[in-house]
Amino acid sequence: MADAVVTNRLDRRKARTRAALVTAARALLARDGGVDASIQEITELADVGFGSFYNHFQTKTELFEAAVAEALEEHGALLDRLTADLDDPAEVFAASVRLTVRLQKTHPQIARIMANTGQQYLGAPSGLAPRALRDIEAGAKAGRFDVGDAAVALACTGGSVLAAVHLLEGASSAKVDRTADEVATNLLRMFGMPTTEARAVARRPLPGTSRRRT
């Protein structure tokens, strides 16, 4: 019994140390992509011993990849929760795009990580990319989208979203909202939806918000 208690305590300590390292890495990724950070800087920011780094990660690259994956999956899981009750695949897609662009004001750290790790973001197996592909394919199957190649449509989506996130750094809340809706509208139009309908879908109340249109 005593051995089990000690083991559980050690496991919790290891988990806390790993979480502190990932949190520090996320802060560095949001700051400048983490490219110039040393392991010493990472462990100091995490407030853990230098040697403990190697108990969890072999290289800085491995740590930063884990931090990116965590941030993207955190956002992807949020999108899944917020859009779970939407029936129209076009609205699911549009809402996900709008919520992602709005990260600049709702989750600025994740927005900066996305902006600083664009290529990883576009090809990541977690986060918005696989979910957007799923939603594009669902929209095409339901006849809501006219896309020849869902992977190409995904690339257009990812590029548009990342460009908007870059564009909106430091922008006002109202500007972020307008741009998020415009990006979604343009993508819906690109996927074959008539302009009037695309604008209507991209202006529907966002799930999980009390936002009103005037």
Rank of each mutant, 00 (worst) to 15 (best):
D3S: 15
A4W: 14
V6Q: 11
T7L: 14
R13N: 07
K14Y: 07
A15E: 11
R16K: 09
T23M: 02
L28T: 00
D32A: 12
G33F: 05
D36W: 03
T43L: 06
V48C: 02
F53L: 00
Y54A: 08
N55L: 12
H56I: 02
T61N: 05
F64R: 02
A66W: 00
V68G: 05
A69Q: 11
A69R: 14
E74G: 07
H75I: 01
L78Y: 10
L79V: 12
L86Y: 02
E91W: 04
F93I: 01
R98V: 15
L99I: 10
V101I: 12
L103P: 01
K105R: 15
P108N: 12
I110F: 14
I113M: 14
A115K: 06
G118P: 03
Q119Y: 03
Q120M: 05
Y121T: 13
A124L: 01
G127R: 01
P130T: 01
P130Y: 04
A132W: 03
R134G: 06
A138Q: 14
K141S: 14
G143K: 08
R144P: 07
D149A: 08
A153G: 12
L154P: 01
A155V: 11
A155E: 15
C156F: 09
C156N: 13
L168W: 05
G170V: 09
A171T: 13
R178N: 11
T179Y: 10
A180P: 13
A180N: 12
D181K: 14
N186Y: 04
F191P: 01
R204L: 10
S210L: 12
S210M: 08
R211E: 14
